[in-house]
Design a protein around this nucleic acid. Sequence first.
DNA 1: TTCCTGTTGTATAC
DNA 2: GTATACAACAGGAA
Length: 523
Amino acid sequence: MASAKAAIHWFRKGLRLHDNPALLEAIKQCENIYPVFIIDPWFAREEFVGKRRYQFLLESLSDLDRSLRERKSRLYVAKGKPEDVLPQLFRKWSISLLTFENDTEPYARKRDSAIRSLAEGLNVSVKSFTSHTLFDPEHLLFLNKDQVPGTYKSFCSLVKGVKVELPLEAPAQISNHIPVKDEAGEYDVPTLLDMGYKEIVGPPTPFRGGESEGLKRLRMHMNNKRYIAEFEKPKTKPNSLEPSTTVLSPYLKFGCVSSRLFYHELLSVYKQVKSHSQPPVSLVGQLYFREWFYLNGYGVPNFDKMIGNPRCVQIPWIENAEHLEAWEKGTTGFPFIDAIMTQLKTEGWIHHLARHMVACFLTRGDLFISWEEGAKVFSRYLLDADWSLNTANWQWLSASAFFHQYFRVYGPVSFGKKTDKNGDYIRKYLPVLKKMPHKYIYEPWTAPLHVQKAAGCIVGKDYPEPIVDHKIVSKRNIGWMAEAYRKKKAMKQGKGGKSAKAKKNPAKRPSNSNLDGFVVRKK
DNA sequence: TTCCTGTTGTATAC
DNA sequence: GTATACAACAGGAA
């Protein structure tokens, strides 16, 4: 009699039991299921993954473990490189099937193809499923003749009529077999300290990781049918003291909540109300942006770089370590910018429009520093840092791709005022400005000295002077952007045979020594 | 080739 | 609150 068949379901993203086709396939085919997550210690470094996101991941794993134990199973957290760990586990547990969710990121694709051939050599069959996104990017590319749609609108017409699969139920039972004895706790979910991180100082991030938390948050929003039906992204506030958007992004990033579940729940609410908002501003519209950006990450070469990325405008960004550091640390002297960066670091989440504000400021708006630098910082601190989405949004805001109206520059003083005239958001995150009168809170350097004294905040001593003159640098930058776009245009025309034109308008490389003296191109 | 549209700008005028 | 200049982009449709 043949012994019971054993499978590993390998969790990576998709940290959930609901809508998990790969896990269900393992359960269908095998009696003994080993749910595994592999932690690669090499990634446990703060320069890549900030401690708050790592904490969120560990909480998600603990939640998964709890849910599995409720079903008389458990999560096995193994440490090491997947290509080392998995073969060991295959042998140890006599595995014949490996299942996982497809991942479209370049690193993951490389890793998974290596694992596939490894498994093949060890007589382990591999089954993988698309369940992180609404659509299968490979299928979308096939439908669009291998072209990634260049605009949101053309993406929407592409997916019109493509069915979004219904989400699957969580399995009631995982496995017949009793989990292996692990008295030493070899496979337990580690702590932040175990992974070499220092403990989080100050209040914990307000968002806890895991499928349970994610589903709770989803339900909470879905119960508010009016909010769901009327949701319009541009009308939500970047500086409200409580989030004005759903904060489902970290749960979608790790797959604690299935995007297909979210999508079908939205459709179900839409059916129950008289009218609802539409893409691009609606919540379904937000999911479509996610899909479009994932497709870009899948189909555009060198997507996370400027150089070698055919969709990205080539812009001669400035290198300026002091400015970059001031931006990251929240010491630019612009209270709205500094408050947003403080919220980013202390809570791991900031509103979408707040991201716009600081991203525009770092790149084309003020500092003219590469979006790649900004993307690195965001991916360190954001709980929801997602390779495709983060990259795409940085390209958008820096007017490198997707968005091209570079002359629309966010004002670090004006933008926040529109939705928070009193500056309460700034007061919350920058207590040093707590007593600054609202007239000056967005630009404290304009406050008379006696006002600064009365507020207990002297600019230049208690709070920094602004590192740039926004009016001057934003105008200068528009000129530089125009140069870069002209060069792009000339290159494009040059390809058609008129190469002389390409040389006519080369983009000027801005020099650090001439930051304020650049004269905008004359008419 | 021209025209239209593009989630989410700002300052100023009425 | 709404309109307009600012200096003017790209992609896609017609």
